[in-house]
Every structure is written in C-alpha cells, then in structure tokens.
Write a protein that binds this DNA or RNA. Structure first.
Lengths: 321, 321
DNA sequence: ATGAAAGCGCTAACAT
DNA sequence: ATGTTAGCGCTTTCAT
C-alpha cells in the first residue's frame, strides 16, 4: 500500500497523496498494528522492564529514567512485575520475549547469574541488568556506585566536624555490604579508626524501617561516649534514629549530625530536614535506557558494558555545620 | 503444524508425540511469537495498564491487584506511565492498542471524559477506568467509595468518644471533595454539628504533606477549645499533625485521637502507630482485573459497570479508646 | 510516484 | 492422530 509508505515517512510519495492519506487516517482513527509490523521487520520499537515490586519510589524513578531515554529515541516502554519471585521473573522474561520486545531491562531479584547464562542466547534480544547486579558475571549492567554511597555520606559527616561517625547498617545483601564497606573506606580515607561499637548491625529485625533505626539509636545512646555523626542505610531508619536522639534530649544538628540515604521526599521532610545521599534513580534509568538503545541499534555487536552512576550528596539541616 | 496444537493443548494429539514435542521445545528454548498468534486470533491474552505516575505505593497496590486477577485467568499485564500528562496518556493508549492488548485499564489523569467519548469506539478493546473517575459519564469504572472513606474515619473517632472531630482537608480535587463530604455525613449521621473552625482547609499550600498537616494542627491548637479527634486527608498529614500536637504537650490518644488515610506502611509506623483507612488498592485492582476479563470473555456484550469498593478501618494506638 | 506479489509466524478449517 | 491450505496486517522488493 501507498499508505504504509506515508505512515513510515518514505520519500517517494507526492505531497498531495500524503496529505490525503493522513487526513483519512485521522478520520478513521487508524492505529497501525505493531504485531503485524514486527512480524515483517522483527522490531516493535518497544522495550520491556521487569521490576521486583511495583509502587516502590526508587524503582519508580529508575523506570521513569528509562522511559525518558526510550521516548527520546522513539521507543516505548512497558513494565511488569516479578513480585520478587525468581520463577515469576522467569515467566515475565518469556512473556516479554513473546511480545517481541526489542530489549529487556531487568531489576533482578536473582542472587546468582547461573540462571541467565542460558537465557541470554534465547533470542537476539539483549538483556540489561539495572540497579541490582546478581553476583556473578553479567554482560550488561547499569547501577549506582553503592560503595561510593557509604563513602560520601561518611566523608560528609567527617567534614561536618564529626570525629566519631556511627553507621546504622542495613540488611545483609549485596547492596547492604557495599554501602557498609564504603563507610569503612570513608573512615580510613580520613585516617579515622573503625570503632566496632559504632557500626550497629541490626540483624534479624527484618526490614530496615523506622523502628529499626530507632532501636539502633537507643543502643548507641547507651554508650558512655555517644557518636557525633550518624549515618543510616536509608532515610526511614535515619528518621527513626533522629526521633530516638531527640527524645533523649540530643540537639540536632548542634550535638549530633545525621544523614540518610535515598533522598526520599517524604522521609526527608518529616520535621527535621534530613540530609541524604541521592541514589540518582532517574540517571541510572536513563543510562540503562541509552545503553539498551545502543544495543539494538548496533545489532548487539557491542561486547560488555558496565556503568556505575555516582550518587549525589544532598545537604539539609540535619547535618548543617 | 502439530506443534502448534500441542502447545495450545488441543486434544487430538497422541501422548507420545505430545511428549516428544514438549521435550524438543524445552531443548530449543522455543518461545512462541505472540505477535504472530495475535495476528491470526485477534488475541494477545495481555492487557495494558496506564498509571499517572510510577513508584506510587497506592498505585502499586492497584497494579498488583490487577496483575493477580489477570494471572489467575491466564492473562498477563503490562504497565506504562502517562506521567500525569493528558497528551502522553493519549499516546500510551495508542501504543497499547497498537500492541494489540485485549483490554485497557486506565488510572486516568483526565478531568473530563469528553476526550474518551470518541476513543472508546476506536477498537473493540474495552477501556476500564480505575481508581480515578473523570467527571462525566464513563462506561466501566472500578474505584474506592471515597465518601465512605471520610464517613468511616469520622464515625470511628466519634465512636472513640470524640465530640469535637476536626478534619484536615486535602486538595480541591474530586477525591478531596468526596472525602470531605463523607466527613460531613459522618458528623450528621451522629447528629453532631459541622463546626467550620474544625474543618481546616489548607488551600494554596501545594502538596498534602507532613508540613501541611503540621501547620494545620498548629492552627487548630490555637483555638480556645481544641478538638478531641483529628482526621486527615492522608497518613503523612496525620503524622505531621500528631507531631505538632505532641510538641504542644498533647497526649495521644488520651487527650486527642488521630486517624489518617491510606494505611501507608511507613507513615503508620512512625513512632505513634497511626490508625488509618485502608484504601484497599489491591481489591480495587483485583475487581478491575476481573471486570476486564469478563469484558473480553463476553465479547464486550456487557453494558455498563460501576464498582465501588468499601474502604476498611485499621485501628492502631493513635485512636485506642 | 504508485502499486502488485510474496512472506514474516502462527492458527482455523479442512483433508487425510 | 497428523498434515495441508490459506490468510491475519504489514513491509520489502520489484514492476510499472
């Protein structure tokens, strides 16, 4: 059909017919059938993203970043959820391949990559891991520099004059370990000793939430010499810690500085404005999207790509010097 | 092909060949091409959901509910975002139709339905509005009974013995107005007068956040007779209000009861466990998903469907009698 | 500048 | 119980 050519903007059509076609297309509210098109071209100009959970603000940022990057290049994004379940993740991968997505982006819930080794070959669709790298070798990965997260937070508190910096650790995951190791680096960068009593590990307590931060802080306050700076795995824990400190009569930030992580809009504005490390979800997503596009454009000839985004310090009242 | 029949579970295949085919399918990691299939059958067994924003916990619940309902019936769900923009919403609708989704579910950002009037006819794909009904006539809608939200919260506080119940109003949207009107109903149900001074309207202040709740509460505390119960548009506002009250020396719940709305896990566990109205996002989503399935199964012969889900009261310490 | 023919992967209907 | 034929809506190639 001539119509197909017009719609794809081929040159060899007279302006007259072009206008005539477009007019009729509008009238009929014609919407092309991508399925049919993909059957011929092998392209849908749509990519799929799998998230471990929906409604998580951080992941929402990542998704938004990917979306922007794709839209800029004329691609669309569709999202689905693995519900934090490896088996469902697997099913979703197949569903998206089945829908002929040009590329897959995954915030994986898997711990190892064994599973994917075989998967990658399934189709020429590139798979890009985002935000959460399963331990093991992975072809394409874009995420945050998690160690840097801990290092920057620690350096900031030290810069605020804190000699004794405490860390309220998060869960025993890859991310948790990296941030914790960044904390240690931050200390040694400034030739400060790592005091075991200041590294509060709340294992077993489950989620890194308000209560966990609160309890951890109480533990710290019982020491003979309290810390001068406190950093937490995430913002909610930091808020819990601040509340515990304030109830204990500690003045913030004069006597004690705090910094969280995640730059959660809500948590950072609860009474005491909380300094935080911005995880730059948007940027991670955008870079991942760009990579995916390059991948399909180059016919996958690119080898291996790893991108680490640098986190950003956001200063607020809780650590004002 | 015989293979096609095996994969679709047709009966007229011997167990021997069936097994042989399935084995080879596994080996080759064959994944069927839904695009091609849909071209023939007109079905993808996939539905599309458009959300105004990604990473919003409430909407995540709704999406999860839809997902469950669809999976139960062997359908898949893909999600995309309208970024709260009517034009993008329009583009996403077309993108999803283009992908041959069997039905569309939309948490719309539109205020009126004029826009959709034409749209509905575009294809036989049913469109179901979820959670947020644009004012005007809409064919299929599933959402929460927003007036009931306000009524139940109000009734609960009155049940706690509060004679003077204050309401910290939300934004001037359809939802905000309905909840507020529910508050009024709750009062009149119990033959209590509506005291204008207890209905705190914080127009202009922007988002219904912590600060807004805090400020609104301070306003209330300056009155000669303070309220005995306080309900807020959402949980964060309630938390802000509780903090303001506590800083003012008010004991919760002995002297003043509080209830929020949304049953936000995080906000409800910040120090003082906050009673809340659960918006039942999961259930709304599930019902919407069920409706969508019925829609496509019945070949759209169903006329008009409106479902209102009843919100649920969650009692916590902030309103313990 | 326009259109006719063929085929992408699949399945409904019909042989065998 | 298995295989054959035709066609879904589109695009690529090749006439005209």
């Amino acid at each position: 059909m001539t119509i197909s050519k017009v719609l794809r903007g081929q040159a060899d059509i007279s302006d007259a017919t072009k206008a005539r076609v477009l007019k009729r297309v509008k009238e009929l509210k014609y919407i092309p059938n991508i399925s049919a098109s993909s059957l011929r071209t092998g392209q849908t100009r749509t990519m799929g993203l799998i998230l471990p959970i929906l409604g998580e603000p951080d992941l929402g940022q990542v998704a938004a970043g990917i979306d922007h990057a794709l839209n800029e290049a004329g691609y669309s994004l569709v999202i689905c959820s693995s519900q934090n379940d490896a088996e469902i993740e697997q099913r979703q991968i197949e569903a998206l391949i089945s829908l002929q997505m040009d590329a897959l982006l995954i915030v994986s819930t898997q711990e190892t990559t064994a599973f994917f080794k075989q998967e990658q070959r399934i189709k020429r669709s590139p798979i890009i891991f985002v935000d959460n790298k399963p331990s093991g070798t992975v072809k394409h990965y874009v995420g945050i520099h998690e160690e840097e997260v801990g290092r920057v937070a620690c350096a900031h508190l030290i810069g605020c004059g804190c000699k004794r910096v405490a860390y309220l650790r998060g869960p025993r995951t890859v991310v948790g370990d990296l941030r914790s190791s960044g904390y240690r680096q931050g200390l040694s960068d400034h030739r400060l000793p790592l005091l075991p009593e200041l590294l509060v590990d709340n294992t077993g307590s489950g989620e890194p939430d308000y209560t966990r931060g609160y309890d951890a802080m109480q533990k710290l306050l019982r020491r003979r010499v309290p810390p001068e700076g406190v950093m937490a795995y995430n913002d909610v824990m930091a808020v819990g810690a601040m509340d515990a400190a304030r109830l204990h009569g500690v003045r913030i930030p004069e006597e004690m500085c705090f910094i969280g992580c995640g730059n959660d809009e809500q948590a950072c504005q609860m009474g005491m404005p909380l300094s935080s490390i911005d995880i730059a979800g948007q940027e991670v997503g955008h870079k991942a999207g760009r990579l995916a596009i390059r991948m399909v454009a180059s016919g996958r000839k690119a080898q291996t790509h790893k991108v680490l985004v640098t986190p950003k310090l956001v200063k607020r009242l809780s650590s004002q010097i």
